[in-house]
Computed example of a mutant assay.
Amino acid sequence: MPDKNGATIMQRYILWFSVMSGALVAGCSEASNSATEAAPSTTDDATSTGAPTTAGPTGESTETGAAPTSSGGEELGQCDPWLQDCPEGHKCMAFAPEGEGAFTGTKCTPVAANPGSLGDPCKVEDGWWSGVDDCDHGLACWDVDPADNSGQCVALCRGSEDDHGCPGSDDVCVFWVPGVAHVCLQGCDPLLQDCAEGQGCLPNWANGGQDFVCQAEYSAEEGQVFDPCEFTNACDPGLLCWGPGSALECEQDAIGCCLPFCDLKDPQCTGEGAVCTSFYEAAGSEPLPQFEDVGICVLPG
């Protein structure tokens, strides 16, 4: 719906992760054989190393694109997603030129005549990249199914880059492309997998996996433990797309492999030789107190 190991990940995965104006362009890094490599970042340096993840657009290019026009031909120009400084009847949305692998800018797009409210089903026009949907002002169509461009209206982050928030007390403001795309997703516990049906509780790679948010799950008939995967939410709830070298049962030439979360207080892993290892040790970051028991079943590093 960006990372390292010598390759830019944004070009590989399109329309699979929930996103501002459609399915988030997401990606995995080249497969890592070590679960101790650093997790991807969401900075303009889209070359961090790490296990396959859905980092979302990390600002590989955060420049605004060409000035859009309204349906009547009026030039509306670029806009500020924090200020929502578009003309009346329009909202400031992230977009990308068709064929791009990530959001590249913002533009004013018309608010639908009968717009959807928070939590309502929605549709995007043309594709995730268009920035045009039928959600109300301050909302964006998220968790988009690329088969029919349908999703759910969620809130855009409010405030400013330095002082931001969400209308829901349990929501997390996720910075997919700083300065371009910021959206509120429900926070969750990966050990409880306490998201709605059809969603998984997965790392918020936009801040290095410091917290977890509910994301649409697109595994279909696949996505079971040790199945190959190519993006974070291609595994069943309770599993995470990780480097295939972290489990003997994985296809070693795959992009990624579905591995289970585990509880460090009650470590249980089924893979041969697998050990319940701190998720944050594996991701190369420090845990928040409420997530210090979150682990992932991997081979010892």
Rank of each mutant, 00 (worst) to 15 (best):
W176L: 07
F95T: 05
D170L: 06
E74D: 14
S29V: 13
C108S: 08
C28I: 03
T54M: 08
C297P: 04
L192R: 03
C173W: 05
E37T: 03
T270F: 04
A112I: 09
T62A: 13
P121W: 07
D120F: 04
I9T: 14
Q224P: 04
A94R: 07
A140D: 06
D162H: 09
D189W: 02
E37V: 00
A112S: 14
Q84R: 04
R12W: 08
Q11N: 14
I14G: 10
F95M: 02
C195K: 00
E74Q: 12
P300H: 12
P237Y: 00
K4L: 15
C229F: 08
I255A: 12
G198I: 09
V154D: 00
D293I: 03
A196W: 08
P300C: 06
T8W: 15
D211R: 15
G238C: 07
P300N: 09
G245E: 10
G223V: 11
E63H: 07
G200Y: 05
P40Y: 09
C92R: 00
M20T: 00
C257M: 12
G243K: 05
C79A: 00
G295V: 12
L185G: 01
W16D: 15
C276E: 04
R12V: 13
E60H: 10
F95E: 01
G72Q: 10
L118M: 11
H164A: 12
M93I: 02
Q268W: 10
D45F: 14
Q11G: 15
C86H: 01
G301V: 14
T64C: 02
N207L: 15
L15D: 12
S285P: 06
D45R: 05
G131M: 12
G238P: 10
D44T: 11
M20L: 10
Q78Y: 08
E286G: 11
L15Q: 14
P260W: 00
T47I: 10
M20F: 06
K91I: 00
M93S: 02
A96P: 09
C235D: 09
D3A: 08
H90P: 01
V294L: 06
C166N: 03
L156F: 02
E292P: 03
P260D: 04
D253G: 06
N5Q: 13
E88G: 02
D80L: 14
W142C: 11
Q11M: 10
E75F: 08
C28L: 05
V294H: 02
G99H: 13
P87A: 11
G179V: 01
G59E: 01
A55M: 10
V298E: 08
S219V: 05
D120V: 12
C28D: 07
G131R: 01
L240T: 07
C257T: 01
